[in-house]
Design a protein around this nucleic acid. Structure first.
Length: 546
RNA sequence: GGCCUUGUGGUCAAGAGGUUAAGACGGCGCCCUCUCACGGCGCAAUCCCGGGUUCGAUUCCCGGCAAGGUCACCA
């Protein structure tokens, strides 16, 4: 068979020589040990926590080693394309502090452009044509129906499914058969002519999983689809070689196709990159674990965390603790150090899939938020409120000096220990709602109205905004005592039956009257922030409520 | 079903041939206390199962089992 003729017929036209590409995309001039990693999403625009997880690993390894992180768009499947998706992905990752050095819509070094695979069609075809000339790729005219019938038959016979060995019908088509089919205008794909034997296994060193046993590939996989666009496998080999990727970190769902990639790199004469397959983030679904899915878990979309008002840094810290479990301890020990200073290692990554734990994220969020200054907190809340909040909440920012007072109190600034009341921006704004606008009673009084009114009257009778905290509390105690409540908790605990209740119950009445809730930060401070007029008004209002 | 990977409390996990098997989250209890939050102290809870090697195995080996992944002209 004249392979040159075949190649010309299958992929007609002049293509640059392969050396041209080698020169156009030269080896990168980077220090020894520097790793070039990449993120290669398809442009669906949807990106979830699992993607962030991999992204952080890629980013850390690249930048920690003095290398590069780039963004490539895998748009070989038209069905997946969504308008504006690339910008959305970049924005989402940027929010969580993932910075690319180059890539689609990033700017920066354009040496390795274009970054959209559709724009690289010429390159893939040139390599495919070379493979055909060398007899390592061939056209396949099988229809989808034939292929699925083959698959069914293989399943029935309990054979390994796929296009390989004796099942690869088009593999040994004669020259006449091929040209006849071509003349008939039959659509075709280009398949790799695999030289592997699946019964032969060898060990492969994965940067995350360690030693992995993999069989040789024996599948004649499609490398060019009938529209002349490459499949993932082929594009991966060509792009990661030409873009000079040194380390491919990707989800473990790719491990199964690693043999294909290995054969592709070999047959193309490319040195293999290093690989690290990380386990996917899991979610509990019914009684069993499963990996995060974009279709089933929209609530785990990155935009979800943003909308809920999780602080991006908290999310990052959580991801990092899942990525390298000693990060948590390190971070606790050196809270002022940036995550960039942490010695991140692929080898410290878990080999089994971690279940996403919202409780843990919430705990970390509280921790991180409580470590901010009130000013930082205000800025964070403000950004969220004007992006996702209600008008009512945006109004909180009309008087920032007042808001700052509120935040300082709710964060326990100045006290011995910071309070940890805030989990997200959304929750925090809801939490401080009683400092703004009208009164809303959330919690019910545990005493009857007569007692409530007696407490409120008693308090109002001696209340002065000029009192310091101590004086204020002694007055509350006096009210308690006058109504048959224990002024000292100690006394009450010693003999609960001797009292109607304790000073705690009296304070609760005041607290609900002023804030609408049974729980709040220090009541005296709240009244202090409110000022005398507003405090008295609230209490009077509560007094008259039925 | 074939192939690959992984099995340490409810969750994330450290760990080593001999340990009282770290720590964190969550749960529970106590203390602190005007409530909550914070903080402190404490409790419950784990080495998938069966063989083998060994003086000794949760750790090494084999076999089960379970879970996850994957078997496209999707990535």
């Amino acid at each position: 068979m004249d392979l040159n003729l075949l190649a010309e017929r299958l992929i007609p036209g002049e293509y640059p020589s392969l050396e041209t590409f080698e020169k156009r995309y030269p080896l990168r001039d980077l220090p020894v040990g520097a790793q070039v990693t990449r993120l290669a999403p398809s442009p669906t625009g949807f990106i979830h926590l699992g993607n962030l997880f991999v992204a952080i690993a890629n980013e850390r390894i690249a930048h920690q080693s003095g290398g590069k992180l780039y963004l490539r768009i895998e748009d070989t499947d038209l069905k997946r394309k969504v308008e504006g998706a690339v910008e959305a992905v970049i924005a989402a990752l940027k929010y969580f502090d993932i910075r690319f050095d180059e890539g689609a819509e990033i700017g920066g070094d354009e040496t390795y452009a274009p970054w959209y695979q559709r724009q690289r069609a010429e390159i893939y075809r040139a390599y495919a044509k070379d493979l055909i000339r060398r007899g390592r790729a061939y056209p396949c005219f099988c229809t989808e129906e034939e292929l699925s019938a083959l698959r069914d038959e293989q399943m029935k016979q309990k054979q390994v499914t796929g296009y390989y060995g004796a099942y690869a019908k088009c593999r040994d088509l004669s020259e006449q058969e091929i040209f006849a089919a071509l003349d008939a205008g039959k659509p075709f794909v280009i398949r790799l002519r695999s030289m592997g034997d699946a019964s032969r296994k060898h060990t492969f060193r994965d940067e995350i999983k360690g030693e992995v046993t993999v069989p040789e590939n024996d599948q004649d996989v499609v490398i060019l689809k009938s529209d002349g666009i490459p499949t993932y496998h082929f594009a991966h080999a060509v792009d990661d070689h030409l873009m000079r990727t040194t380390l491919v970190i990707r989800g473990e769902e790719w491990l199964a196709s690693l043999p294909i990639h290995l054969e592709l790199f070999d047959v193309l004469g490319f040195p293999r990159p290093k690989y690290g397959h990380n386990c996917s983030l899991m979610k509990m679904d019914g009684g069993s674990k499963r990996k995060l899915s974009k279709r089933k878990d929209p609530e785990l979309s990155l935009s979800f965390y943003r909308q809920e008002g999780y602080h991006p840094y908290a999310v990052k810290v959580y991801m990092l603790t899942l990525l390298n479990s000693d990060f948590e301890e390190w971070h606790r020990k050196f809270p002022e150090k940036k995550p960039e200073e942490f010695p991140f290692r692929l080898s410290k990554m878990s080999k089994s899939g971690a279940l996403f734990d919202l409780d843990k994220l919430n705990d970390i969020s509280k921790e991180e938020l409580s470590a901010r200054s009130p000013e930082e907190m205000l800025a964070f809340l403000k950004e969220w409120a004007f992006a996702f909040g209600a008008q009512k909440e945006q109004a909180y920012f009309a008087d920032e000096a007042y808001l700052l007072q509120v935040l300082s109190l709710c964060m326990g600034v100045g006290g011995k220990k910071r309070r940890k009341d805030f989990v997200t921006a959304k929750q925090a704004l809801a939490e401080i709602g009683y400092f703004f606008g009208g009164y809303v009673q959330k919690d019910a009084y545990r005493v009857d109205n007569a007692v409530r009114d007696a407490v409120l009257d008693g308090f109002l009778a001696t209340y002065s905004a000029a009192d310091d905290s101590q004086t204020w509390f002694s007055k509350v105690k006096a009210v308690a005592a006058s109504l048959g409540f224990a002024a000292e908790m100690r006394d009450y605990k010693a003999d609960p039956s001797a009292y109607k209740g304790s000073v705690a119950d009296v304070a609760e009445v005041l607290r609900i009257a002023v804030t609408g809730r049974a729980n709040s930060p220090d009541l005296w401070s709240i009244m202090h922030i409110f000022g005398e007029e507003r405090t008295r008004a609230r209490i009077a209002e509560a007094r008259n409520r039925r």
